[in-house]
Simulated scan of single mutants.
Amino acid sequence: MRRERLSTRPSPDARHDFLVELRGEPLPGVRLTLRLVPDLLVPDPASVVTYLAEFAGYADGLEALAVAILDDINNELVPRWVEVAVESDTPLPHRVVIEDRQPAWDNPRLVGRLRPL
């Protein structure tokens, strides 16, 4: 079970919005950028490396990969906001970005300061 590879720890301060950004390579030649605003839990970066290794051999396309990662992060961490971007340069430059947020969460100042992926 892929999701079981993700471990978390309590947020150092759930009263404040802060951004966590992690980068990895779930498949050879595929780059991942994961950005999230935690709620009660933050991801353990070492576990994200182990989690991404579970995608070895994944062949359902970048769109399905982005959705799978988003679903896993939403289920295990329940962040206030999350953005998953996956991209590859072969056979053509291809990028997929997907975002989700808790229904009542909004912080336009924080999101507005994010640099484009």
Rank of each mutant, 00 (worst) to 15 (best):
L110Y: 05
L114K: 01
D89Y: 13
A66K: 07
R35P: 03
V20K: 08
H94F: 14
L114D: 06
A64T: 10
A46V: 05
P93F: 01
T90W: 00
N107E: 06
D44F: 04
V30Q: 06
W105N: 13
F18N: 04
A85C: 12
H16P: 00
P93C: 10
L52T: 05
W105Q: 05
E63Y: 13
R80L: 00
A85M: 11
S11D: 13
N75W: 14
A59R: 13
E54V: 09
P12A: 06
L34F: 00
E99G: 11
A85D: 00
D39F: 04
V20C: 11
Q102M: 15
A64S: 15
L77W: 03
V49E: 13
V42H: 01
W105D: 15
R31Y: 10
R80G: 02
L41R: 02
L27K: 03
W81D: 01
Y58G: 08
R9N: 11
I69W: 00
D44P: 02
P26S: 06
G57T: 06
R109K: 13
R109S: 15
R113K: 14
L70M: 07
D71A: 15
L32K: 07
L114N: 04
P79L: 00
L52D: 08
A66T: 12
R9E: 14
D13W: 08
D106Y: 09
P45D: 09
Q102I: 10
D44G: 05
P28Q: 09
R95I: 02
I69H: 05
R31I: 04
D39L: 08
A59F: 07
V67W: 09
S47E: 08
D89E: 15
I98C: 04
L22P: 04
A85R: 12
L114T: 07
L34G: 05
V67M: 14
R31G: 13
A59I: 07
L27S: 00
R23Y: 08
P28C: 06
V97P: 02
P38V: 01
L41I: 07
P10D: 14
P108E: 11
L27T: 00
D13G: 11
L22Q: 12
A104S: 14
A68Y: 10
L32A: 01
D17W: 10
L19I: 09
E21I: 15
Q102V: 07
V82T: 04
G57M: 01
V48C: 03
V42Y: 01
P93D: 04
D39I: 06
N107W: 04
R95N: 09
P103S: 12
S11C: 14
L77V: 15
R23N: 13
V97E: 15
V82M: 07
L62G: 02
A104M: 14
E21P: 11
A104H: 12
D106K: 12
V96L: 06
G24K: 05
I73F: 02
E63R: 05
P79I: 10
A56G: 13
V30A: 07
P38M: 09
P26K: 03
H16V: 15
V49K: 02
L22Y: 09
E25W: 08
L40P: 11
R31Q: 15
N74S: 12
V78A: 15
A53P: 10
L114P: 03
P10W: 12
P93A: 05
V84E: 00
H94K: 12
V49F: 03
A68D: 15
V97H: 02
P38H: 07
T33F: 01
P10I: 08
H94Y: 14
